[in-house]
Design a protein around this nucleic acid. Structure first.
Lengths: 153, 153
DNA sequence: CGCAATTCAATTGCGCACAATCTAATTACG
DNA sequence: CGTAATTAGATTGTGCGCAATTGAATTGCG
């Protein structure tokens, strides 16, 4: 017990735990920051992410959205039904490949894009660091994610 | 439409979206990396986080664990019952303040600490960056979280 | 002391996440 | 051609995450 930070095992475990907590906490802080901003739009955070992908490119199959966000049909199917219920998207089977369900924006869903600009601005302020800081953080997180997913083959 | 990255609004929105995706993806990549490592221990990722806090300090009330992890009783109550079911923790009312339920490690729960050292090592490898990189990332994430939570008062 | 306000956990309800399973449609291959 | 393998999406079941409510215990204040 006389060795403290000297013990590499113990140090790694502590650091691992701290990194756990940090990622976990930051992700939740993010969703909590978004929640009140998205409430007026009637969107949850995952729903907002789906809408962003559709604003970037309309009329995508469920699979494409899932690949973009790393979500499977078990998550997206009910989520998209709720967006359909809200009148923001339409779901129709692809004529050429009837296995696919293509998700497209309704007029209302497309309109929402404009109201969402305020959300991004508010987040920009909340993140606090300048643009360079945000860019750097984004790139680090992307790199971290790639290392993690690569490590799992 | 002729202005592209020049448009500050549009740039902020895109960056905001990218930071969203990055945090979201990194957090999920983390849990996915942990999942196969924790499966032999019979723990989920949030359960692992709870166990870490108990390994750091045993016999804590639910509230203290919740403060440490940013979780409320709605999440912790059923989670702790499952840990109790697994025989890893015990739940007993505090004699001095019967509102509190103190969570303590069982012998089995304490033992698990040793098996968990392998998990931390594997994660250290998967994170890929050296110790300095991990430390830097941890500090950035902690700072980000603090800015986000502070922004929401 | 006695009552109101506060605190701690538990519960309920909704919405993700994800594994496993299922159905239907498409593609590949002998 | 026809069957096997693959692919897309839906469904089911388990486990978070959180808001809102409830109930019991404690604290604060007149």
């Amino acid at each position: 017990m006389q060795k403290k930070a000297r013990d590499p095992d113990n140090f790694e475990i502590k650091l691992d735990a701290q990194l756990c907590f940090a990622i976990y906490g930051a992700a939740h802080a993010f969703t909590r920051t978004y929640k009140p901003l998205l409430e007026p739009l009637g969107l949850t955070y995952p729903q907002y992410l789906v809408m962003i992908t559709l604003w970037e490119e309309d009329d995508q199959p469920v699979k494409a959205i899932g690949d973009r966000l790393g979500l499977d049909s078990g998550t997206l199917s009910p989520l998209l039904k709720r967006l359909e219920q809200s009148g923001l998207v339409a779901r129709k089977r692809d004529r050429d490949d009837e296995r696919q369900v293509r998700i497209s924006l309704t007029a209302k869903g497309d309109e929402l894009r404009h109201q969402a600009t305020g959300v991004a601005e508010a987040i920009g302020k909340a993140v606090g660091c300048g643009l360079e800081g945000a860019v750097a953080l984004r790139d680090e997180l992307i790199a971290l994610k790639q290392r993690l997913t690569k490590a799992g083959e």
